[in-house]
Simulated scan of single mutants.
Amino acid sequence: MKVLAGDIGGTNSRLALVAVDASGACALSALRSFRNADFPSFEAVLDAYGGAHLAGLPVALAVAGPVGDGRVQLTNRGWDICAATLQARYRCSALRLFNDFEAAVYGVDTLCDDGVRVLQRGAANAAGLRLLVGAGTGFGVAFGAVHDDGTVQACSTEGGHIAFAPRNAVQDELLAFMRARHGRVSVERLLSGAGIEALHAFCRERHDQRPGPAPDAAGVVAAARAGDSAAAAAVALFVELLGQVTGDLALATGARGGVHVAGGIAPQLGELLDAATFCTAFADKGRFAAWMAALPVSLVKDPWLGLKGAALALRREMQACERGEGGG
């Protein structure tokens, strides 16, 4: 089965042809990545990729936002994407939209050893719930429930918009700092590109640094690598918060099937993502600390996870239709 698959985030759109074999293995070709800021609409991205050649192909798109009735408005990009409109315009044989983290859950089984970095070793329960989180333009959360036959049912959430809960005095200060800016403070306000910028502003204030030009998230990470104290503190705090919130979500869902951390930011941190900092915050759950420390946690390094997951989600849906079970 060959699918045109896309992973459409707030910042970038990735597209490729994906050949899925009977075992679920994915072979990618014609891979391209686009900066969304360079395009007025998603249709313009598809045209740049070669929309005229999509006729007759099934298309699966993983999109950064809640999908309903075959359409989505991207949470962090003002694009309204409608499956029916795109299918009619490009004459695709089928076109389906999936939440990006829902799709990524299906992609987890395609990961090989060099596609992950182990943050915490543990024994996964094959029948247990799987958790996937990731920070990028926003903060995504999804989980996968395993059926008796071993197949996975992915469920998307808007867990990135839960409230931030401080766990120490520094984080109490951070909450007050962020509340002055936003009122209610969600975890996405901190665990995102904009979140790294906000953490840097907070750390500059705490380090009594003079106000100056505010770097973007990539600039903060570069400054941290160059030894800037406020930038290094901001990245360390981001890693701590990422571990803390991921742990909260793993505890809330009972993620015995394992935890995967994806998204556009964490894999780019490299050596700045200190596993000990992450795992200490992840497991700091009082009476459940030992239980948390036994969960396997991995960092996803494969940038094509969501794209492959979208292709597999469409294949799963089409197979269900062939069996007369309906989609989803």
Rank of each mutant, 00 (worst) to 15 (best):
L129E: 10
R35H: 11
L190A: 01
A135P: 09
G324K: 13
T110V: 12
A64L: 08
A223S: 12
G258F: 02
A233W: 06
K308D: 00
G150E: 10
T253F: 08
A234V: 01
G50P: 05
V63P: 00
D302S: 15
L191W: 07
F288H: 15
L95I: 00
V3E: 08
F202C: 11
A176R: 14
D216F: 00
G257Q: 02
L305S: 01
L295Q: 12
R204N: 09
R316D: 15
L307K: 00
V152S: 05
A222T: 09
E322G: 12
C279R: 03
D284P: 08
V220L: 07
S186C: 15
G254I: 09
P166V: 13
P40G: 12
W304R: 13
L74R: 02
A104W: 05
L132P: 02
G258V: 03
W291D: 14
L199R: 01
A30T: 07
A201L: 15
T151F: 13
K2G: 07
T75Y: 00
G65K: 00
V185I: 02
G56R: 08
D80P: 03
L86W: 01
D149F: 12
D113F: 05
A124D: 10
I81P: 05
A255S: 15
P211R: 11
R256N: 04
R117L: 10
G306C: 00
L251R: 13
G134T: 07
T253P: 06
A30K: 06
